[in-house]
């Protein structure tokens, strides 16, 4: 779904890839590979479809589908603790999105434009969180909060989420920034704009598609995050994935299917927006390329 919309984006065709565009001859297309691919898609989607399907089950059974109903969604949304957790997760994701996007964008701009000697060190510091297992990040965050005596709450979860989101945003925004020269800003300044004016009127509008895509991506990642939240949340209000964790360990229940399905809808909507929104900003461009930073290379 998402990929299809993106391919339509008008990117300049690469000369080499287009040379052999017709379908390869049939002898060149091994049938077993197609069967294998079908199997992989089946295994990826089957468990998810089962979660969705059973979330509408009228019975408590997790093996027999017997009639459709919304009772598990009612159970979920009528439970004050779960509802509170849902709102906590949305709140964490929203704050993470805003703060992480601002800081990450600043980092991307600074890394590309600044000639400070320590910026290469900062570049490495920015990359490390991306390859650090979440459990390491979670425990380190827990230790710093403990050390400075900060009570664990959804606020500490936000702090931990913002930390990792800075790197994601910086990567995405930097990918786009690398494709933009500084000529337009210089022209703006020749015409009388101040430096900040050039940033505000020229640089940021150019970066906007990447910033929006990165922000939404970070929202989805934060909303779905379990490990970081698990280590940094307090006892009173817990993010939804942490509640789901306790519930699953307690045993499988149809309510979990409903929570899972609703979370899926929220995440996938965010991702769909991340893919589609940048295309609304004037130029039609491939959102996948914006998100993966492929544009600049």
């Amino acid at each position: 779904m998402s990929g299809g919309a993106a391919t339509a984006g008008v990117t300049k065709p690469k000369p080499r890839a287009r040379k052999r565009r017709g379908a390869p001859k049939s002898f060149d297309r091994p049938r077993y590979l197609r069967v294998f691919a079908a199997f992989v898609y089946f295994f990826l989607f089957a468990p998810i479809l089962i979660v969705v399907l059973f979330s509408f089950n009228a019975q408590k059974s997790l093996t027999v589908l017997d009639g459709l109903s919304l009772r598990w969604y009612e159970t979920f949304l009528n439970d004050p603790v779960l509802r509170e957790s849902l709102f906590a997760s949305l709140q964490i994701a929203a704050v993470t999105m805003v703060v992480g996007t601002v800081l990450g964008t600043m980092l991307a701009i600074g890394l590309v434009r600044s000639r400070a000697r320590w910026s290469s060190g900062l570049n490495i510091l920015m990359l490390i969180p991306l390859v650090t297992p979440e459990i390491v990040a979670g425990i380190s965050a827990l230790l710093i909060f403990w050390q400075i005596g900060l009570q664990l709450s959804i606020f500490t979860v936000m702090l931990a989420h913002i930390t990792f989101s800075i790197s994601y945003v910086a990567i995405v925004v930097r990918g786009r920034l690398a494709t933009m020269g500084s000529e337009a800003e210089e022209a703006a300044m020749d015409l009388g704009a101040t430096r900040w004016g050039a940033v505000r009127l020229v640089l940021l509008p150019g970066l906007w598609p990447a910033i929006v895509a990165a922000g939404l991506l970070v929202f989805a990642l934060s909303f779905d995050d379990f490990v970081l939240s698990f280590f940094t949340t307090g006892d009173d209000v817990q993010p939804l994935p942490v509640r789901v964790w306790s519930a699953i360990r307690f045993g499988v229940s149809p309510t979990i299917n409903a929570i899972g399905t609703l979370m899926m809808v929220i995440t996938l909507t965010t991702i769909a927006l991340a893919v589609m929104l940048p295309r609304l900003f004037g130029r039609r461009e491939s959102a996948i390329k914006v998100l993966t930073g492929q544009e600049g290379g």
């Binding site: 990929g3 299809g4 998810i48 089962i50 699953i248 899926m264």
Partner: peptide, 24 residues
């Protein structure tokens, strides 16, 4: 890209929920 997009899709479903599906 449609095919790749379809492959990416399940990975945006919460990891806990996906693992839970396998438990069921």
């Amino acid at each position: 890209y449609l095919l790749i997009g379809l492959l990416v899709l399940p990975f945006f479903v919460n990891y806990l929920v996906r693992t839970y599906a396998w438990v069921a």
